[in-house]
Amino acid sequence: MLAGRTALVTGSTSGIGLAVARALARAGARVMLNGSRPADEAESLRAGLAAETGAEIGYTRANLAQAASARELVESTIAAFGSLDILVNNAGMQHVAAVDAFPDDKWDALIALNLSSVFHTTKAALPGMQARGWGRIVNIASAHGVVASPFKAPYTASKHAVVGFSKAVALEVAEQGITCNALCPGYVRTPLIDKQVVDQAKVHNMPEDRVIREVILAAQPTKQFVEADEVAAFTVFLCSDAAKSVTGSVQLIDGGWTAR
């Protein structure tokens, strides 16, 4: 399906990002992994994924909170594989606190990673896509890109902004064979969610099992976590030729959360 294409997936050494990278590799794409793991762990992960999928797999460490590093990640992918056809902006962070108690440095870090890095990687990737007349950009936003939750104002703001950014980019490149979409999962059981469970337990003074059922999944009618592989499969579809007319869209995979 994606043979001959090169994909970069940010934040792809665990959770949603790793599932997306694996699915793209299985679909035939060359994949550049990105994360902050120690060199030996990163190499083991890279080699294992290559052996499992039979695809060419690379790994580049980058601090996406820094503009120069985000741009260099794209440049490194192009240098390694010759092109960049698919960009999946997945890297993100979360911090749970009321606005009046939210640390300024956490705000700056969250916006830099969740939002600004999406701008910097997209800006760096577009010229090559435009030159070839083909490209796919999938921004992993969140159901919080559509609705809000208390104690997550900065995260909600960043994901709403990613949704708006995705729409604007889609309009700019609509006649150039490039699509840009925001994929908005509900709660997926990942290390990021595990941290939220701990944080929310402190905020609500509740045991973690009750937090999962009564806080984390309270708004998700299925009362089940979305599987990372579901998000990955949706991403592969958005990168396929079957989705060439799907652009500027907000794709929800949230267990019915936003149907309320």
Rank of each mutant, 00 (worst) to 15 (best):
M1F: 08
L2M: 07
A3K: 15
R5G: 05
T6A: 12
A7V: 14
L8E: 07
L8M: 10
V9L: 09
V9G: 09
G11H: 03
T13W: 01
S14R: 10
G15Y: 02
I16G: 05
I16Q: 01
I16R: 07
I16S: 04
A27R: 00
A29I: 08
R30P: 03
R30C: 13
V31K: 03
V31P: 06
N34R: 14
G35C: 10
S36V: 09
D40Y: 03
E41G: 01
A42D: 12
E43N: 10
R46E: 09
A47W: 13
G48S: 11
T53L: 03
T53M: 04
G54A: 06
E56N: 11
A62P: 06
N63M: 06
L64C: 08
L64K: 03
Q66K: 15
S69T: 00
S69I: 06
S69A: 14
S69D: 13
L73P: 04
E75P: 03
S83H: 11
S83M: 07
D85E: 15
V88P: 07
V88T: 12
N90S: 06
A91C: 10
G92R: 13
V96A: 01
V99W: 08
V99A: 13
V99N: 01
F102K: 10
P103Y: 11
D104T: 15
I111Q: 05
V118N: 08
V118S: 02
F119Y: 04
T121C: 13
G128Y: 03
M129W: 08
A131D: 15
G135L: 02
I137S: 02
V138S: 06
V138W: 01
I140G: 07
A141C: 09
A141M: 08
A143R: 02
H144V: 11
V147H: 01
V147K: 01
A153V: 13
S158E: 12
K159F: 14
A161D: 07
K167E: 13
A168Y: 02
A168N: 00
V169C: 00
A170R: 00
L171H: 03
Q176C: 02
G177C: 02
P185Y: 13
G186M: 14
Y187T: 12
Y187F: 15
Y187C: 10
R189G: 08
L192E: 00
K195F: 02
Q196D: 10
D199Q: 12
D199T: 00
V203T: 11
H204V: 00
N205H: 06
P207F: 02
P207L: 01
R210P: 01
I212Q: 06
R213W: 12
L217M: 11
P221T: 13
P221A: 11
A233P: 11
A233I: 11
A233F: 10
A233V: 10
F234K: 14
F237L: 15
K244T: 15
S249Y: 06
Q251P: 07
G256F: 12
W257I: 10
W257Y: 15
